[in-house]
Design a protein around this nucleic acid. Structure first.
Lengths: 197, 197, 197, 197
DNA sequence: AATGAATGAGTCTTCATTCAT
DNA sequence: GATGAATGAAGACTCATTCAT
């Protein structure tokens, strides 16, 4: 019915276990410090199984990254782009990112830094070709609609994504010890004041 | 005149070469992908020399990180804290970070991400105990002096550091292809609007 | 029939080859002068195979030692303890040790000195907790049965094991160039005279 | 007047410190586990000093061994050979070895096992060309004088040295926890009974 | 004589990957 | 599809030795 990758119409359970475990370990220890034996042990699968499902370690990481990126774009499309005004889009973006962080911190962290240069060559997913474009687009649209002031697009982009990502970062680091969802409004307000006409 | 570590009154030249090379390689390839043989080759020193000067690879990275952190704090103290008002401190901060990035991108990048969890357990130096405190302090002072609005300190902190660091990030990634010094004013303006009373 | 460690019901042949080779090299060159590459070369196995079968070099040595000790205890039990009188036990001990030396000099030497302090902390297997106990026991029994004179147990122990081990030692060193089996009677006689009532 | 190795008529103090420290470390940890840096640290001398006084590590060990062997022969000559009868020589040998062990256990241990095959190719000093000869000689003389029975010389040699060395061994191992000097008589008695006519 | 920085060959060990079963 | 034994290249680190000062 929906996306599947083997003839049973369901992602092999082993494949899922590998992905889930690798994702967690890559986030916890980093890509390089996570060995295939680590994944074998924690996922309870065999070495062969990993190589049966994925070309190699890099490809496994790339696939996990792709999954996260797809998820980001889906959420962005569904929750953010669907909003009518920039102001609403902005709020939706902050809300989406913050609640996603609270819901699936591992995946968000993966998106943010568990990706080695070998896997993707950009530092942050939201800066990936597609991710960057998506955010840039709504800024561009905001300017065109007259909602936000003109100016260097990158500065606006940096203000918007920087603020959000930085807060997620210090939340993950444990500096912030309450759910980010509590500061959606305040964060949105700051960014809005920075960008609005 | 001041600090030195061998009888010649200068840090051993070999030691310097190791640090410079390791710093660059750690930034270019990451800590784990940089092998001791890599450093040996690029720095033109012997394996033994590295271990003569540093306990181990981790310690080498730690020392480089410490150097960068010290430099950050020095610059922060000299250029930022010395300013009278928050607004001026803010501009000084942006200016300091942006011009430092253009002057010594390697060191700034090192500060930003070339450090594995094993070396320092914070993701960003400006978030290191001391770095965080320093920035937090000027925000706190800004609130107390009535220059900036009250509100969750972390949100203000995230807005300020996030915007600056994110711009540095995309500059390093090559997304921005002009010197950050050109957008000091605009960046300062955005942050100021976000935080001011 | 009994103990096995892979599905073929036989200890992996590679594992055996590693043990045999390491045992010989440890004896020939000593533990520390025997490198893993040495074992790899001589056993015709890969580095990885060694680490697949043994935790590390130390553990490999420990296992070999354990094997030798087990063998000693088995022989001691079968040939020596089963004898009715002390005099017969004594002769059986000398005979057992001397013929074992001629049959498997490598294993006997391993038992005698190829073990670094890190691996086992006793100097000689016959001095290992169990080995010592076993010999002490027959001496004790000999005294109790009135076959041998009373006196400091250690002196008796030293006389008995010292004489035997020393002869094995100089045989291995090449000082003695005929089979020890030729001097079983004479050796037994000396010890018997020293200890008998 | 007597042996000296530098123009001041006294062994350089540094040289002595190196020898004493190396001897102790070789005994405590074995030759291979003792590194030059270890000796440098513990003796408080420089690396260069060691290489100034000794050709290399092996030579240092050899020299220490030579010292111990010379000491053995001196003691053997003075205390043992000077005795008139075999019985007295025997007692003197046991006494000499046991009290030497209690007085300078490090040197005796060095003689007994702290020598790697590279340094001397015999397992025990008393088995060294000269040491062996010396002991063999008194046995031979004992036979000729009719004090001890005829028979295989090696068996007699093994009985004599084996008993003594084995007791020293288990004393060093901590199995015997009283001074060996307390068992001089008993040990002598055992050996005497084994060998006498 | 003494120092200790520098060297680099060699050590143990890990780990991504393959492949016979 | 799944397994895990086997491989061997590569990594971090040690240490005997040299040599300029």
């Amino acid at each position: 019915m929906q996306g599947s990758s083997n003839r049973n119409g369901k992602q092999s359970e082993i494949r899922q276990r590998i992905i889930k475990t690798a994702q967690r370990l890559f986030v916890e220890q980093g890509y390089h410090r996570t060995s295939i034996p680590d994944i074998v042990r924690e996922a309870g699968v065999s070495t062969g199984a990993i190589y049966h499902h994925f070309t190699n370690k890099k490809e496994l990481a790339r696939e996990i990254h792709q999954l996260a990126l797809t998820e980001f774009l889906k959420r962005f499309k569904n929750h953010v782009e669907s909003q009518p005004t920039f102001k609403e889009k902005l709020r939706a973006f902050v809300e989406m990112m913050f609640s996603w962080t609270e819901t699936d911190p591992i995946m968000v962290q993966y998106l943010m830094y568990a990706r080695p240069k070998e896997v993707v060559n950009t530092q942050m997913a939201i800066c990936s070709e597609e991710g960057l474009d998506a955010v840039m687009c709504i800024i561009q649209a905001g300017i065109e609609s007259g909602e936000i002031k003109e100016g260097n697009l990158y500065v606006h982009y940096g203000t918007l994504t920087g603020t959000v990502l930085r807060l997620i970062e210090i939340r993950m680091d444990g500096v912030i010890d309450f759910p980010l969802t509590e500061i959606i409004d305040e964060t949105t307000a700051n960014i809005w004041l920075a960008l609005k006409k």
